[in-house]
Amino acid sequence: MARRDLTGAVDFAYLESFAAGDAQVVDEVLALFREQAAIWSSMLNPASEGWRDAVHTVKGAARGVGAFALGDACEAAEVEGSGKLGGVHDALDAALADVAAYAHERALQSLKTPR
């Protein structure tokens, strides 16, 4: 998996700009996003009492990292109800796949770039 595998689910240029080009900040933010996604996934279930809170939290985090389609899917679930949670899961999976491809590409570049 590498940059060529990006689907556009995350706008990394937005995130890089927001982090003022600080690659370490970008890496830290994406690591937190991935860790939190594991927690969110179990909460994004209509049987979970806190699914609405989880959707709201994911929406903000998604928009913060540039995963705008995920943010929009969360907003749809907030407005239209738990029937939209499948779209949230799909968008979260796409965002996480893009984050993994981006991180993999950065790891490859670090092997090629002299320090």
Rank of each mutant, 00 (worst) to 15 (best):
A69Y: 04
A54L: 04
A94S: 09
V10K: 03
S82Q: 04
L92N: 05
G81M: 06
D93K: 13
S41H: 12
I39W: 08
E80T: 05
R4N: 10
S17N: 02
H104C: 07
Q109G: 07
H104K: 06
K59M: 07
Q36P: 03
A31E: 11
A94K: 06
R63F: 08
Q36H: 14
A67T: 11
E75G: 06
V58I: 07
G66M: 10
V25F: 02
F33M: 11
L30Q: 12
D5H: 08
S48P: 02
A77Y: 08
H89D: 02
L32C: 04
T57A: 11
L44N: 06
A9Q: 10
A20T: 14
A9D: 10
A54Y: 02
L70E: 00
G66Q: 14
A19E: 12
F18C: 09
A9G: 11
A91H: 01
Y102N: 01
E35Y: 13
Q24K: 15
E78I: 04
V99Q: 04
Q24S: 15
R34Q: 15
D53T: 09
A37Q: 01
E78R: 05
A101W: 01
D22F: 04
A69I: 04
E75T: 02
A103L: 05
Y102R: 02
A37M: 03
E16N: 01
L108V: 04
E75N: 12
E35L: 15
Q109L: 14
R63Q: 12
R4D: 09
L6N: 00
L85N: 09
K84R: 12
T57P: 00
P114T: 12
A67W: 13
G21L: 03
V65L: 03
F68E: 02
G66E: 11
S17D: 01
A103Q: 10
A77S: 09
V79P: 05
E80N: 09
S110I: 07
F12G: 05
S110D: 14
D22G: 02
A38G: 11
E49W: 03
V55E: 08
A103N: 03
V10F: 06
A9E: 09
A31Y: 03
A101E: 08
G21N: 05
A97P: 02
M43K: 13
A23H: 01
E35I: 12
S82T: 02
G71M: 04
A100R: 15
A95F: 03
L44S: 11
G64F: 14
G60Q: 06
A23M: 08
A61R: 00
Q109H: 09
A19F: 13
L111M: 07
V25P: 00
A67D: 11
T7S: 11
A76I: 00
S48T: 13
E78G: 11
G81Y: 08
A23T: 12
V65M: 03
Y102T: 03
M43W: 07
R63E: 13
K84W: 05
A95M: 05
L32Q: 04
A20I: 14
